[in-house]
Design a protein around this nucleic acid. Structure first.
Lengths: 172, 172
DNA sequence: TGCCGGAGTTCACAAGTGCGAAACGATCCG
DNA sequence: CGGATCGTTTCGCACTTGTGAACTCCGGCA
């Protein structure tokens, strides 16, 4: 699980995106900026300049506070290794590029277009290759407890399998 | 309720008493002391020396956080993802447009007319489609602990389901 | 009290289409 | 050769949305 460091107020739009995504974040408040009013449980702030140890302490406190709220986030490195919940899998290059986008957008919708650009830079292979690789990515990520959910007519969304949003499909 | 200001670590015994009493407190961490690890939701800290405004901001945030713990407001993003109480669901386009209105009017009555204009811009599909989609929206939002309540002859109203479990509050 | 009518709810069915997934090929590399 | 990666085709399912009708709920009125 990661805490995002956000300079504030210069990166306030990034802060908003993280807030919408319910991602934990630490605001690094620039020297002359006013102090922010923080009510989100996944957010804290520290005044710059700050000791490295103080920043680390706030990150640790934030993580400890959120430990009860299950906000674990998967990670992927540059060799295509995805780690989550103590397990890991390795991905082939193309799927690693797709997974990288989905991981950074964890719990947020990623458009098909965005994924296509990430997987095939500078070309458009059409619809099917993406579909097939999403399918293969699903099978590889499943053992980790991760799920690639389809958001019809919008794109895809990576989320934890068992936790949180187990949506009952309405009968109709 | 007030926030107690505690010098730390010199008044650490007072801090412990306040913690046992579940009283909100702000630790004023002395210049050379190590940063404390804070997991209690009723506690925060600030490194001395600190601006008066920064201290005030932390006090305000602490009070606001405690006041808002069970007054969480649902949110919806532009891709139709509704988040509330640590859970989330994705909505199809039409229901997302309806939900967007109900979410921004949280706990306030929204007229059928308003919802119709939001769901079907530039046309009027009649009464029934709206009713049906309200029903479908109800079923989708139910797992989040949200309820669409009917206000007879007035409209609809989104509110928290009273039976839903609130966010877990550690150490309080 | 009992009945009526409007308001609101729920269901079944259907059309259109976005998407899933298997199966098969092609290519690359040890 | 054998395994892994990646593309293509194809069939069919399931999701979204609309429609009509049956059904329940509730207030008003005689």
């Amino acid at each position: 699980m990661d805490v995002e460091l956000v300079r504030w107020p210069s990166q306030s739009d990034r802060r908003d995106r993280l807030q919408v995504a319910a991602r934990p974040r630490l605001l690094l408040v620039e020297p002359d900026a006013p102090a922010p009013l923080v009510t989100d449980l996944a957010e804290d702030w520290v005044r710059l300049p700050a000791e490295r140890a103080d920043v680390q302490a706030r990150v640790d406190s934030l993580l400890a506070r959120l430990a009860n709220l299950d906000l674990t986030v998967p990670r992927i490195d540059e060799w295509g290794v995805v780690r989550y919940g103590g397990k890991q899998v390795t991905l082939p290059p193309l799927e690693a590029r797709l997974a990288a986008v989905l991981v950074t957008q964890f719990r947020c919708v990623t458009t098909r277009d965005h994924l296509t650009r990430a997987g095939w830079p500078g070309e458009d292979p059409g619809r099917n290759p993406l579909d097939v690789h999403i399918l293969r990515l699903r099978r590889r990520l499943e053992p980790l407890g991760l799920r690639v959910r389809t958001v019809r007519s919008r794109g895809y969304l990576l989320e934890a399998d068992s936790a949180s949003s187990k949506v009952a499909v309405p009968d109709m």
